[in-house]
Nucleic acid binder design. Sequence first.
DNA 1: ACGTTTTCTGAAAGCGCTTTCATCATAACA
DNA 2: TGTTATGATGAAAGCGCTTTCAGAAAACGT
Lengths: 338, 338
Amino acid sequence: MHTMRKRRSTISDVAKLAGVSIATVSRVVNGTAPVAQETVDRVQDAIAALGYTPHAAARKLAGRETGTLGVLLPEVAAEFFFPLVRGIAEEVRNAGYDLLIHVASSGLESSLSTPLGEHNTDGLLIFTGRLTDEEITRLYQAGFPIVLLYRSPPDALAIPYVMFENKRGARELIEHVITVHGRRRIAFLRGPEGNEDSEWRERGYREALERHNIPFDGDLVGMGGFDADIARETIESWIMEGLDFDAVFAGDDEAAMGVMAALRSAGKRVPDDVAVLGFDDINSAKLMAPPLTTVRAPIEAAAAGAAQALLAQINGQQPPHQLRYPTEVVIRQSCGCP
Amino acid sequence: MHTMRKRRSTISDVAKLAGVSIATVSRVVNGTAPVAQETVDRVQDAIAALGYTPHAAARKLAGRETGTLGVLLPEVAAEFFFPLVRGIAEEVRNAGYDLLIHVASSGLESSLSTPLGEHNTDGLLIFTGRLTDEEITRLYQAGFPIVLLYRSPPDALAIPYVMFENKRGARELIEHVITVHGRRRIAFLRGPEGNEDSEWRERGYREALERHNIPFDGDLVGMGGFDADIARETIESWIMEGLDFDAVFAGDDEAAMGVMAALRSAGKRVPDDVAVLGFDDINSAKLMAPPLTTVRAPIEAAAAGAAQALLAQINGQQPPHQLRYPTEVVIRQSCGCP
DNA sequence: ACGTTTTCTGAAAGCGCTTTCATCATAACA
DNA sequence: TGTTATGATGAAAGCGCTTTCAGAAAACGT
């Protein structure tokens, strides 16, 4: 049996059945001009009878917009990604757009097959180093609407971008374990290479140390990659080496989970022997053992904000150049608090 | 400053610059017919000079295919979702298609604004109860390529679908805690209403009980929703009620995480007092405290398989009607094993 | 050298839809 | 009652691209 494909019905089919012109059908479908009630009914009956749905591509071609927004994501991995997409999807749908999500493969095809250019979408939400600076610059200069997610624009271009108050959140978090729990050998796990969130968090970490006269120790900084497995390995090797530390700021919550696992299997108690600190406050943070002290980043809200900024840009409005979202320390038990 | 949008260059611009016809440009872009090397060079120079990119919509309109596949997802939630999308995205990209992801809002707009119909895509991967049976039936009857993810087709239509060996996996898992750890008061947490995976897992659970002459007790079945928070609440209320159980099969790993958290804060030890069992073997399963005994479901592979089936269908081939992926019990410590 | 393929290229016809522009009725106005 | 808004509709021009269809040029065969 082969799939015999019915020809999909077009606007002309509807027009014919309803005994009107295609222009009229278009009008009742889009409500772009007054149409007599009787005609409307006739057309709608025809549409129902034929099971007609407008062909998206044709629509896009005729109008000027594509009706879809794109999101460029790095290799899908983080739990972090959920609220992000949820926030964007919500906003985008409400505005009547479609969401085209592109997930980077292994980076091999950087600029080769970037199939999603300015043509498939009306605008782009670009997550972290997914596109090269040149490409971003090119899009910007072509007047293509884009919003950067968690990274600032290259060459100080006036591209809107969303950011969290990473530095402040990190600083407050570290100060908490210093002042309240008296920790002084605090390790930090960096996120992926070139990640701006990570850079700012590191700055916050250093600032906290400085404020309390704790000398910065490069040995206490390692790779976390915002990834549980990477973080775990780092901690495991530190323990093997006998590195001394009484707290670790994992960079993000996922990494924190890996840190806890490593500590646990090495027989170290959290938080008694080592305090563990995360960042983001993902859903599972409160479910960890012990519940994770972290910094809440309003990921979903930020994502929604980014989407709004993009939509605004598309509608010719002037979006804010930077959207900075506040963060808030969330004290649970992994820091030592009861 | 308002965003002054440069007119994007079209195929005619390129043709003019290169001094050829648009047909020729189309040919060199698509490699659909032999073109003299010299001409090719000239056209490519023009393309580069103009920064030309084909307009997707126009392309789709002209050709017959839209070049994009759609995935319909329920309200984004699960970690489970990652490998899923990764598997699909990989496969889809390799085939040169785009991936359009639609995330359900709150279900309100079920059939109202399903903007992604047969028109925006060449085929659809449909996740769990996102579309009504009628709609699926309609698409199927229109000969539109679809593949169902983790649900079987309505009315036994010949729509390809992917499934895991849920029942077998669940049965083996339960039998493990019965035979090896002597548990007899084993609770089960159901997934979302109507979820087929959950139904099969429950069947496996019951089968295991039967085989070991443990009478089924309805009190030991509760809501898990494949969600940590829901599962947690269920367990908390059970503990409040004083319900007696020595193991809980959470339905999936996310729920298991919630179960563990509930148990922990109630002062129960896992696995000593209560064994906890999951399903899926998501990445964080091995990081839980204690590491979770679960059933590994090859989510990514299954997703890739689904994508392949869809692609096959689109290319006029006959895909298998059912793709059933094997599951495998993964013993860690939450069951009581050392 | 002449007929026959093979290469290469352009003209032109759509793909399905939105949108002026123009045309009529009608209804509102003086 | 003549004139002017106003409401409803159709004809037709594209949107940017792919793809026959055909012709011109070059390569081949004998």
